[in-house]
Nucleic acid binder design. Structure first.
Length: 805
DNA sequence: TCGCTCGCTGGA
DNA sequence: CCAGCGAGCGAT
């Protein structure tokens, strides 16, 4: 007798452990750890992951596994181990960790089906139930649920006439295509072709096709197109057993109708050469090293990645490249596809669930050797990894903001240790954590200080918008920026205008009483969307029409504040009527592929100005862009977040890097209301090193990373007092259990104190080394488990949070 | 006394 | 997470 330990797909504390199941005789030896199975769990059936096989079980009533969902394990041994490690380091459920490592398509869908036990019962079904079973034997419960016959169904189920079947379904479908082949000897086909009646002209056509192309297997669609016929004659021939159809599985290829120009390795500059050699060394000697490649924008980091990968592939190993959000940088995909062609799989959020699944399977089957993708691609199921590259290592999107709250950088290093291979972290503005580690020689620092084409970094002008206002300029464009924009249009060069994320939409304020329209469910102001003249809450989705008068004082003097891309576009059209503008933001890039389309348009010089938010900050490389304008550099600076200076510096540096990458020199204009701030000043001088020094001082002073680790406990509850009191208890508990070197701050209200009618309180833990921390936090979750189930309480724990929000 | 809602609990 | 069950309460 063999048993499988299974982690079931039920998110609860009590089920966050393995359950034993009997492996039926027919599957012994076949079922392996890492496979997905369907098991009976209580009265229903659920999906689960086999994590181990054993010869006995301590339980006496062990049920057998009902179904196997994989032919080869979905999770490798290594990934199973990573799952366990994730549950410990991020305090999540095991099932969440496993699911996070697989494409969404492999998550189970549960459906309840109501089946008529026997056709004999049909005549005497309850009249309200009968119509559902007129022509079929089963109905989905989710369809019945909405109807008014729920009760009658229940009665029939109790009577034993109807039966409930719990279905576990795969979300995805493997995409298949119908292929047609001849199913008979050519002689037979000929005979049929000649004997065919005059009416069967089309059949004759098809038969002749298969006679002339003997043995061919052709996609049905192609056949129909080629012979200009419908499928009816084909069907007839299949019925006559002269042809045969078969379903062949095909991959959805998101890059199907695209050709990638094959590129050859470029000659490396002396500096790149020096940079790449320790990496190649490490690859050759199968050593686990972490490199921090600190290279200014335009210094040719990507070419170093490409050539490092080449050496890994030559060794017969695989590589993973992480990029912040790949759909945003089609140019990046092109470079990898161009160099490595069909050896590349691409995984990013712009793909459909099915497309992601297909890309994942290519990796799983070993059909590709290189993955380029966003955060979750770090879990690519390779078995012989030779390198992991994380581009723009400082990016916040590498941290998952929901369970499991992992950081891709940590996972990458963990995997690389296992595979004894290097990790390369690349950035023009490394995170303080990473740069500090490089300083302590935990990481090896590699510097690229020159741009490949010897172009100087662009000139940056910082403009004090308060002065502009004083001198009577009330528009959002400083006179200098406007002048330069006009100049570029005259010279037929291009400009990029950048607006910070938070400034993307505007809030509404009454000019008489100063009250700002807020969300009724959240402690946050509503943002104005021109489309439909609606006010929206970005946190809970609440929407309301734009008010005509102030709700407080009935004044009609209400107007928008802050600047959105839509408004900038309008204003721009007023001051520069001749400019052709492309706007890129959530509204214009919502649909699939629209992002790329807009960028291609800009690349083809169909516009003079590209106006956008965050999403245009990264990786764009257009030769004719010679001016970059940042409209409001400080929107992000004053957020209640210890990383706000760092983020501002990174963003400004990043954006500035978009200008003058090729022959034409570039210029940058940064508009700000606090131009004296060090992150703006130092970004304007391209001075990362001074910024690092300065920011480290601040972090040390306030005991923030990288000097301390953080853990953030956020408690939320509809009742303010409950939220406060629970947070207080937690803080007290932690104070008792943890050592005195730990600093516990709080309880304090979260930066957004209420979301969706739930009050949020938090408690921050700053620590250096704390053996007890994980255990203590786990105790808290267990202690409040009941409250969380029944009393709307929720506690989230974020180890190494990226932001405080 | 029936029937429904609520909260609790087990799940291998 | 969720089906199934028992407790408890209001309607008949």
């Amino acid at each position: 007798m063999r048993f499988a330990s299974v982690i079931v797909d039920v998110k609860a504390m009590q089920t966050d452990r393995a359950f034993d199941y009997l492996i039926p005789e027919k599957w012994t030896g076949f079922i392996k750890p890492g496979m997905r199975v369907i098991v009976p769990f209580g009265p229903r059936k659920v999906q689960g992951f086999v994590i181990g096989i054993k010869n006995e079980s301590e339980f006496d009533r062990v049920k057998p596994i009902a179904e196997v969902m994989d032919i080869t394990p979905a999770l490798t041994k290594e990934l199973l181990d990573i799952g366990h490690w994730l549950t410990q380091t991020t305090l999540c459920f095991k099932i969440s960790a496993f699911q996070a490592m697989l494409p969404a398509a492999m998550k189970a869908r549960y459906e309840k089906e109501i089946v008529l036990v026997s056709d004999e019962y049909r005549p005497n079904l309850h009249p309200k139930v009968l119509p559902w079973f007129q022509s079929r034997r089963s109905v989905y419960w989710k369809d019945i649920e909405k109807s008014d016959s729920v009760k009658e169904f229940q009665m029939e189920i109790e009577r034993g006439v109807l039966e409930v079947i719990y279905q576990v379904k795969q979300k995805n479908k493997k995409k298949t295509q119908k292929y047609i082949t001849s199913n008979a000897e050519i002689a037979e086909l000929k005979k049929e072709s000649e004997s065919g009646s005059a009416q069967a002209a089309k059949q004759k056509l098809i038969l002749d096709y298969f006679i002339n192309n003997s043995g061919i297997s052709v996609p049905l669609q192609e056949l129909l197109l080629h012979l200009n016929i419908t499928d009816s004659p084909v069907k007839t021939l299949i019925k006559k057993k002269l042809l045969r159809e078969e379903n062949v599985e095909i991959y959805r290829d998101p890059y199907e109708d695209r050709t990638f120009k094959k590129t050859e390795p470029l000659a490396l500059t002396a500096e790149q050469q020096t940079a790449i050699s320790p990496i190649l060394n490490s690859v050759e000697q199968n050593r686990h090293d972490v490199f921090l490649m600190y290279g200014v924008t335009g210094s040719g980091k990507t070419e170093v990645y490409l050539q490092s990968i080449e050496s890994v592939l030559n060794q017969g190993k695989e590589a993973i490249v992480l990029v912040p959000e790949i759909s945003l940088t089609p140019q990046m995909v092109n470079r990898f596809k161009g160099r490595f062609g069909s050896l590349v799989a691409v995984l990013h959020s712009g793909l459909s669930v099915g497309e992601k699944y297909d890309e994942w399977r290519k990796i799983h089957r070993g059909e590709v050797k290189l993955v380029v993708g966003a955060r979750s691609a770090v879990f690519a199921p390779f078995t012989n990894l030779g390198m992991i590259i994380i581009d723009e290592e400082h990016e916040g999107s590498y941290k998952q903001e929901e369970n499991p709250r992992y950081h891709a950088r940590d996972v990458a290093i963990y995997r690389a240790k296992f595979h004894q291979c290097p990790v390369v972290l690349g950035s023009a503005t490394p995170s303080l954590e990473s740069f500090a580690r490089a300083g302590k020689e935990v990481y090896q620092l590699i510097s690229l200080k020159e741009r490949v084409n010897q172009r100087p970094l662009p000139q940056v002008e910082v403009i004090d918008m308060r002065d502009e206002l004083r001198s009577g300029n009330r528009t959002m464009f400083s006179s200098s920026l406007l002048e330069k924009l006009q100049d570029r249009i005259a010279k037929k060069e291009q400009s990029v205008l950048f607006l910070n994320k938070r400034g993307y939409s505007s809030f509404v304020m009454c000019r008489d009483c100063g009250c700002v329209t807020g969300c009724p469910h959240c402690e946050i102001s509503l943002t104005y969307h021109k489309h439909g003249s609606q006010l929206k809450c970005h946190y809970c989705g609440h929407e309301e029409p734009m008010p005509k008068v102030c709700s407080e004082c009935s004044s009609e003097h209400i107007r928008f504040f802050g600047t959105g891309t839509q408004r900038v576009e309008e204003e721009l059209a007023k001051v520069l009527p001749e400019a052709r503008i492309i706007r890129m933001d959530v509204d214009t890039t919502g649909r699939k592929g629209s992002h790329e389309k807009l960028l291609t348009q800009f690349g083809n010089k169909e516009a003079d100005i590209l106006l956008g938010t965050q999403m245009i900050a990264k990786g764009l490389d257009f030769p004719d862009v010679t001016l970059v304008g940042v409209l409001t550099a400080d929107t992000m600076l004053h957020l209640p977040d210890f990383r706000s200076s760092e983020k501002t510096f990174q963003l400004l540096t990043q954006v500035s890097g978009r200008a003058g990458r090729h022959e034409l020199p570039g210029e940058v204009v940064i508009q700000s209301y606090s131009p004296e701030h060090y992150s703006i000043q130092l970004a304007s001088h391209h001075d990362y090193d001074s910024f690092y020094q300065q920011e480290m001082l601040t972090r040390k002073q306030h005991a923030y990373p990288p000097f301390y680790y953080l853990a953030l406990v956020t408690v939320s509850h509809p009742d303010l007092l409950k939220a406060v009191s629970v947070t207080e208890k937690i803080a007290k508990h932690l104070n008792q259990r943890l050592s005195d070197t730990v600093k516990i701050l709080g309880p304090v209200a979260s930066p957004i104190p209420r979301i969706n009618d739930r009050y949020r309180y938090q408690c921050m833990i700053k620590y250096k080394r704390e053996e007890n921390l994980h255990a203590s936090l786990k105790m808290i979750i267990e202690r409040y488990q009941q409250d969380m189930n029944k009393n709307q309480l929720s506690i989230s724990i974020d180890l190494n949070p990226n932001t405080m929000m």
